[in-house]
């Protein structure tokens, strides 16, 4: 029913500079999310947050394959995808910490990370909606004749909401340059996706119904996600239309905030921790002959970067209260009467 791709076998591994970049991106994402969790426990990250710990190889693989003018749409679990577009850590962490320095000066919060300057077109917190919006960006690229592609990330739970189905159909009918990426981490919030879905692959198995390729990829293998991304983006950019990728992965933590994820069987968690994408990739690079010092340098630079970002965010004051009534409308204000 679905095309299961084995890209590292088919095409060989990515070039060394790409692989080091993939490793760097994943290390930075991991450091960022671990710090976000620590700061949450300290009461410094407010509200809610949904961490991407364990799912780094998806955001990194696709992020590394994007051109600067391409568009990214992500979900409320979107820290990794935002960092993958080159958005600096400090404004992202400051947004989580509700500070003036925040990416949106604290007006959006963890679930709505957006940096239009980086073509990170938003993180959306209503399941499914952003697939339709991502279509619009891809449609716009086509209308303008611009060689841009759009990548849209979402979770497995999204595959059972109407907007998912509306979006896939229209993307194919309009032959849009878009790649849909389902991060199947097996659990919606507290319920396993397999227990509420009619087919084994919640995303890829639906693809044939809408006439687009459904590709299953190991979402914990950065070489594999990168190779699939390169192929799918090339297809979209070349006028070949949309693709639907299902990346099989696992979140190391709970759904959000302090959820310990205890509803998941211990053996399942242990098995997936064995397949943690970071040590897996580190080991592979060492085996490929990359000197360990090169990897240690990446790790140390990332540790310094997250420390600096944390300090910058902590030093930032809360947002100016004038922001409450700013930017409801395009005139910059909130006036609704004359």
């Amino acid at each position: 029913m679905t095309d299961v791709m084995q890209p590292s076998v088919d095409a060989g591994p990515p070039a060394l500079d790409v692989r080091l970049r993939l490793y760097q991106m994943m290390v930075e994402m991991r450091d960022f999310e671990k710090r976000a969790y620590d700061l949450f426990l300290q009461g410094l990250v407010k509200g809610t947050s949904h961490l991407g710990l364990g799912q780094e190889a998806v955001a990194a693989g696709f992020g590394a394959a994007l051109a600067p003018s391409d568009y990214t749409f992500a979900t409320y679990r979107g820290h990794n995808h935002t960092l993958a577009r080159g958005v600096p850590m400090a404004p992202v962490m400051a947004e989580l910490m509700a500070r003036q320095l925040g990416l949106m000066a604290g007006k959006g919060g963890s679930m709505h990370l957006t940096s239009v300057a980086h073509r990170m077109m938003g993180s959306y917190a209503i399941v499914g909606a952003h697939l339709t919006i991502a279509n619009g960006a891809a449609w716009s690229s086509k209308l303008r004749g611009a060689p841009e592609v759009t990548v849209c990330f979402f979770g497995d739970g999204t595959t059972n909401i109407g907007a998912f189905h509306e979006a896939l159909n229209l993307a194919v009918v309009w032959n849009l340059p878009i790649v849909f990426v389902c991060e199947n981490n097996r659990w919606m919030e507290y319920t396993p996706i397999g227990s509420v879905t009619a087919v084994p692959h919640p995303a890829a198995d639906r693809a044939p119904a809408y006439g687009l390729p459904g590709i299953v990829v190991d979402g914990n293998d950065a070489d594999a996600t990168y190779a699939v991304a390169v192929a799918a983006f090339a297809r979209a950019r070349g006028g070949g239309g949309p693709s639907l990728v299902e990346a099989e992965t696992y979140r190391h933590g709970g759904h959000s905030r302090a959820d310990p994820g205890k509803y998941r069987p211990d053996e399942e968690v242990a098995a997936w921790l064995e397949r943690d994408p970071l040590p897996l990739y580190r080991q592979r690079l060492l085996q490929a002959g990359v000197p360990e010092q090169a990897l240690v340098s990446i790790e140390e630079a990332s540790h310094r970067a997250i420390d600096e970002a944390t300090e910058l965010a902590k030093a930032s004051p809360p947002p100016d209260l004038s922001l409450v009534e700013k930017d409801v409308y395009a005139d910059g204000g909130a006036a609704w009467r004359r």
């Binding site: 568009y71 239009v116 077109m121 499914g128 909606a129 952003h130 697939l131 339709t132 919006i133 991502a134 279509n135 619009g136 960006a137 891809a138 449609w139 716009s140 690229s141 209308l143 303008r144 759009t150 109407g162 907007a163 509306e166 979006a167 159909n169 229209l170 009918v173 309009w174």
Partner: peptide, 28 residues
Amino acid sequence: RTRVFDTPISEQAILGAAMGAAMTGMRP
């Protein structure tokens, strides 16, 4: 047909497309 688009009965897809296009330079 390069500027006028008949759509499926998919109101979410219609308005999502309008939104995504509006945020990237069009006026749908």
